[in-house]
Amino acid sequence: MVKIKPFEVEQWMDRLETTPGVLNIAETCAASISIDDLMHMCEDKNAPGPLSLSTKLTYGAIRGSETLRRRAAALFDRASDAAPLEADNVLITQGAIAANFLVLYTLVGPGDHVICVYPTYQQLYAVPESLGASVSLWKLKRENGHVPDVGELEGLVEANTKMIIINNPNNPTGSTIPKSVLKEIVAFAKARNIIVFSDEVYSPLYHSLPPDQDAPPSVLALGYEKTVATGSMSKAFALAGIRTGWIASRDPAIIDALAAARDYTTISVSQLDDQVASYALSEPVLGPLLARNRQLAQANLGMLSAFVERHAGVCSWVTPTAGTTALVQFKRGGVPVDDASFVLDVLDKTKVLFMPASPCFGHGKDFKGFVRIGYVCETEVLVDALVKLEGYIDDYLT
């Protein structure tokens, strides 16, 4: 029997996010939108709507409609050094969480070794462990802006290393791996015939990069065939409710293997979800949708940055540059708080919810005092939450 560790961040969220009156700044999606919202955003008022009510609801296209796969493929061509990605290089899945699981379930097994950035979404290292692989954690450092140090790979790689797993933008830190570092990672892997798997679920929400830094490309854009990337409509596109994601690879054999393995699970995604996702990624809608989410992220990050600066004696961070999440450390009397107890106490006293990093993103006390805040929620929710959190700091931390 496969033994898998509890998925801590999801279990914490499931237990607490329905607390009556909660101010949820634990949510990691850009503030959700409706189909009506999408239709109002559309710049072509003559474009057909997102749903065909006359379509018979069969299983539909097993790998996803050609339209959705083509539009998802185009997302990976940003700043590409390679030929455009084709629709056949994309497999549509039930969200990125299913995409990630399918990649790991299909490509990793007993006797394999995996290198995974850390901290990151627990799924990315817990699932390989459950499948019998050994995992080395590639630890991100605050002093390096949470950008992985490629020089450390030589000390982590083993003769049986099958895969290097990265997450760009990173959850929970909100950091960005720049193109120069991505190219070094790919070159290292290519020289050793190692798969590079990039969870890009928060891409392309690169909203606060330094003026001299461009948004990095997808790992698929760097010309190495044995690269795999996942994404979804949930985070950067604010449509978690349609449960639609994708896997893309330049290696047709990888896509075929993933499709064959998926026959045992979901077969296909809902035709309705496929249609809504296709509409959201269409040219008249995609630009306004991403602009809305980038503007929301920038405005809310400014508020959170001002909060952290005002309370520099109590909290600190590495300022996020992308995505929707921030990793913030809180201290009391110069000593990091017990983040799990702190989260529960803040929720009890203020109804403000965020996630503790030690149980959700760390082993033991790796992230003592750190919490993950999802700041790309509705602005009024963030404003109310920060006011209440300020009161808590005044009463209990200073």
Rank of each mutant, 00 (worst) to 15 (best):
T28I: 09
A385T: 10
N193Q: 11
V269M: 07
K235T: 07
A260M: 06
W246Q: 08
L107C: 06
V276W: 08
P178T: 09
W246F: 15
I4N: 05
M39F: 06
L281W: 03
Y105K: 15
L131M: 12
I373Q: 06
G109C: 11
V308K: 13
A357Y: 00
R63K: 15
I97L: 13
G60K: 01
P210H: 05
R310Y: 08
V114W: 02
K235V: 07
T379Y: 02
G241M: 08
M303K: 15
C116Y: 00
T398L: 12
V127L: 09
Y125A: 04
K56N: 04
K56R: 14
L301I: 04
T398V: 15
M233L: 14
D36I: 07
E27R: 07
A99M: 05
V276N: 05
H363N: 12
D256E: 15
L57Q: 05
L209H: 04
A72D: 00
I247Y: 03
G223N: 04
A385Q: 02
Y105H: 15
W138I: 05
K3M: 12
L289I: 07
L347E: 09
L258I: 12
Q298P: 00
L290D: 02
L51M: 11
R292A: 14
V196S: 06
L107H: 07
L389S: 08
D199T: 04
F7G: 01
R71T: 05
N46H: 13
L137K: 11
R292W: 04
V181K: 06
S234T: 01
V328F: 00
V376Q: 02
G223E: 06
G374R: 07
D212R: 09
D348K: 15
R142F: 06
K139M: 09
T379M: 11
A340Y: 10
